[in-house]
Nucleic acid binder design. Sequence first.
DNA 1: TCTGGGGTCCTAGGACCC
DNA 2: TCTGGGGTCCTAGGACCC
Length: 463
Amino acid sequence: MRTQASILHLDLDAFFAAVEQRDKPSLRGKPVVVGGLSGRGVVSTASYEARRFGVHSAMPMHEARRLCPHAAFLSGRFGAYRLASRAVMSVLHQLSPLVEPMSLDEAYVDLVAGGWTDFSLAGLADLAQAVRAEVAEQSGGLTASVGLGSSKFIAKLASEEAKPDGWLVVEPGTERDRIGPLPVRSLPGVGPATAERLQHLGLRTVADLRAARPGELRRELGPGVATMLEHLALAEDDRPVTADRAVKSISVEDTFLVDQTDVGALEPLVRYDAAVVGRRLRRAGHFARTITVKLKLADFSGHTRSRSLIGAVDADETIAQVAVELLRGQAGLVRQGVRLVGVGVSGFTDVAQEALFEVVAAGRDESYVDTVRPAVWDQPTYRPGDDVTHATWGPGWVWGSGRDKVTVRFETATTGPGPVRTFDLADEALQPTPVRLPDDDRDTDSTVITGPGWAEGDEDSMV
DNA sequence: TCTGGGGTCCTAGGACCC
DNA sequence: TCTGGGGTCCTAGGACCC
C-alpha cells in the first residue's frame, strides 16, 4: 500500500461519441450513440446528451432508439479512435515509462516510476490539470477525467467520481472512510453474479463487507475471491502498474441476425473467421498451439471446444481445419439454435513447431489412441495398421499411439519386417526431415521418419 | 427483435508423469 | 498388487472488464 497518491488513472469522457462530435460539428451538443446498428447490436458509448435520456453502454440498441429516437446512431470509426488514443497515451508516456493502457480510452500511470516527487495536494492538483489540458491539446479537444490515489482501485474510483471533465485526488489515509458507504459493486472484481451472492448474505456496502463474519465470505465465494474482497474492502490493493502486457489470445466472433441451426451453413463463416484470426496472429508475429471454437446458444449459454496441437501454427488453413472440426463436433448444440459463433487462438510461441502427428481420438479402453494424423493438415490421417509406405511420411506404418507417443513399425514391402519403435511426440527424431526420394522425378521434398537407434530394433511396447 | 466484441483471470477435474 | 502425493498440462465453464 502506497503512502502517497502516486497512481494516476485517466479516462476519456464518452470517448467514441466524443471523437464523433469532435470530427462532426453538427453533432456537438446533441445525443450521439455509437455501437452495433444491426438487429442485435448494443451501445458502446453514449454521449452525455444521450445519457440524459437513459441511454448507456451495453444497452440493446433497439432500446436506445426507443429512449432517444432523435439521437445520431453511428457504427464507429475505430481507425479514428485508435489515432486519438495514441495521441493521449503519448501524453501519459511523458509522465512515466510505466503506463498501463486498459483500453483505447483508459490507462494507469505509475508516477513514482516516472520520477515524480511532489505528492502534495497542490502538486498533484497542478499535475492533474496539466495532464487534462495536454490531452485536450493533443487530441483535438477531447476531455479526460483524471483520478489520483494510492492504488489502482482508488485512482480509478477518483476518476469516476470526477467525471465528466474533472479531476480528483483521494488523500492517502482517507480511502477507507470514502469507500465504506459505496455499494459492493464498486469494488473491482465484483460483477452482477458476485453482487447477487453478497446481497444474499445481506452485504450491500463495502462497510457491510468489512463487518462480515469470518468464514462467511469464504464459504459463499471461495477462498480466492473472498481474500481479494477482504483486502479491497480495506482499500488494500497492491496490483502493480504493468506496461507492455503480452497478448495471450486472439479471437473473432459474430452474432447472427437470426439464430442458425445448420452446421454446414456455419462452416464458411468459421473458415473466414479463422483467416481473420490467422492474419492478426501473423501480424503479431506469433504462432498458436490452441484453437478454440465458441458458440452461444439461443438461451445465451456459452460453449467452447478447444484443441491443443502438438506444435504451434499460424496458417489460416490449419486454424480453419481444426476450427471446422471442432464446430462439426458441436452439431448437436448447433441444431438447438446458435446466436453466435467465434474462433480463437491461444498458447502463443514465437516459433513454428509443426509436428508430425496429432493424436485425435482415444480408443475405447483408453490404452491407446485409434487415430493419428500429421499435424500438417494437408497430409492424410493414419490409424494404427495403416500402411504409410506410399505416403510422403514413410517408410513404415503407424502401429499405435498414446497421448504423447506414436509407435511406428519400420517395415515396407521392400525392406521386409523391421523394428517397432515408440517415439515421444516431442522427440526430435519425429520432427520432419526434408529428404529427396531417389525415384522422385517430380523433384519435390518429402519427409522420412527416422529414429535414433531404430536399426537395432528394440522392445519398446505399444502404449 | 432483449442482451456485442474483444479480452483476462480463476476454478475444477482428469490425464499423466515422477 | 496396492498405494500416495505433487506438479503440470489440457479442457470447459464462468465471472468480470472495457
